[in-house]
Design a protein around this nucleic acid. Sequence first.
DNA 1: CCCAAGGTATTTTTT
DNA 2: ATACCTTGGG
Length: 732
Amino acid sequence: MTTISSMDVSHILDQLNKPQREAVSAQSQPILVLAGAGSGKTRVLVHRIAWLIQVENISPFAILSVTFTNKAASEMRGRIEQLLGSPIGGMWVGTFHGLSHRLLRQHWQEANLIQSFQILDSDDQLRMIKRVTQSLQLDEKEWPSKDSRWYINNCKDEGIRPQSIEDRGDSTTQQLRTIYATYESACQRAGVIDFAEMLLRSLELLRDNPNLLQHYQQRFRHVLIDEFQDTNTLQYAWIRLLCGDQSPPFAVGDDDQSIYGWRGAKIENIQHFTHHFPQTNTIKLEQNYRSTGNILKAANAVIANNEGRLGKNLWTDQGDGDLIHLYTAFNELDEARYITSRIEQWVNESGQYQEIAILYRSNAQSRVFESTLNEQAIPYRVYGGLRFFERAEIKDALSYLRLTVNRHDDPSFDRVINQPTRGIGNKTVDIIRHYARSNSLSLWDASKALVDANSFTARAGNAVFGFLTLINHIANTIIDLSLEDQVEKVIAASKLKEHYLKKDKGDLGQARVDNLNELISAAQGFHYRPDDEHADMDFLTAFLSHAALEAGEGQAKAGNNCVQLMTLHAAKGLEFPLVFLTGMEDGLFPSQRTIDEKSKLEEERRLCYVGITRAEKQLVISYTEQRRLYGSISYNLPSRFLDEIPSSVVHEIRPKTNVWQRNVQTPKTKLKSTGKINETGIKIGQQVSHGKFGEGVVTDVEGAGEHARAQVNFKFSGSKWLVLNYANLKKL
DNA sequence: CCCAAGGTATTTTTT
DNA sequence: ATACCTTGGG
């Protein structure tokens, strides 16, 4: 073996700081890298892999690296290839779902799937559950499909199958279990799996096939996990199964950035990691290369209020930088206008639009920013929204394609049997569904049987027969075509373009046609690489899986150099020179729904920490004194998180004064009651304090004299009606 | 089968 | 405010 020292490995370690080096070159044992925001987490992962290959002579075949998003996976792949100077080879780099999918494609028989199994996205899943609920003759009001979906996905994320749900005589649980079980068999019959199923099925595949398990355990001696704090129970179990006793995991994450508890992520996974793996070497990355000292001081101070942290303190050697600016806005319009003026100022001082991000807690807040930016002709881009492969017209076309692959794909059948409308109404479809259910047939077979038996009215029968014939015809004609020709033929034969042009007049219809054309281009640009996640699949199946697994970009790129608008969640992992952290009001952020539960409030605080640490040079925080939300006006106190930021790092742009005296263009707000002023001078919007309940804001006043009452929204005690005579409120 | 009216819910999101 | 979805009538 060539001596390690003879090989020049300086490029792997040279640019790293001490703890980064320690992590990259650590001995083989469980490693937990606690990587603070902006501390070079991806760099450590990438360099670790290079170290394994180039210094420890580990074969790329023995390495598996898993992330959450496709974006993270492709970034990692790119950076590894760049550092190694060669393709990734036999290494497995992908998302939990991508890697699970790969396992299932390779071992579809052992996993009890059909070879051409397809993937349900969460919209498909919901439709499927709706159908199941109907078939069980349940009232959808009483058993909302969204709730059932939540229940089913939760079970799967916890590794629970319907059979193992305990029967405690609780009728709700029993009913949900029935829905779950029925849904599961419907999926099985149709040859489709949902996202959670993908993970659970691949876990069971390994667990129940000792040979396979042994094979993969022996192969993957090095398992690396990114964003470990976001793993759920199932993902963690998957990792532990794969690692076995022989392959210590290399986990990178940050407990302070765990913001997905609400969708099943278990912060405990990272908190108890050293408990599960007693030999763990924990390495903290605390030097931050992103933000100024003042921004880090604010972030550290806020997050310090959480309990049970693994504990980190970010620092920088780059100096304090500017103070954080805090703007108190009258209302959301004032907030948006101020931010707009700050954006103009930034650009006038030779900054770029793309260096700026406006962050908010909930999507609904983007509207005002959009219209104000529009007015000022400032280019912007809103993150989120429908992704390409989630658009209705695209899913229609994909459903036709899926039916050519597998006629028993019920979700696809259901979707396009009358799309475009071909005279098959609800009544007819119901008959088909009913027949399918009572005879355990797919919708396709049921339709065929009913047509053969002449069970429909002449008109309906012809229409259904026409549909079956169309699908068969399409399938036969595209069989030997190239992928893009297949897609093109399907779109043409289905007449989807004509349908949408007729149905959605104007821009919308044209946009849908454009999207369908785009789908053809996407097919053209799709390349099958035998070494990637789509091993063992034909082109079409690979393309369909790709569409489900990687839904594509949200909203078209509206120019390059533009201001970025997104939720705090969407901002995780990103960084910008100038960041606006908006809507910092109690009840909005932290969200009202979180404030009485400590663990939820702490997650909000972590979200705040994420928001603050997105800023490189300048952070501008804003909140409003009144805000229009859901049609009515709310009066909120400044976010409690603001109190946690040391005032020494904050510069207040406009000192708080009473809104009502300032008299900024008062919009036609109809006050909820007539009570404007009463003997005590308590008015709506007044900040008050109460002996027992503490600080709050008056949100409504009614009555007069000794019966005068005020509704006060208290910071810690919620909203209460108080009789002014007794309440003894102090104006603040 | 299509359209209009009315009822309802409304944090955060990836795969 | 509003968007989305179900429902009822033409």
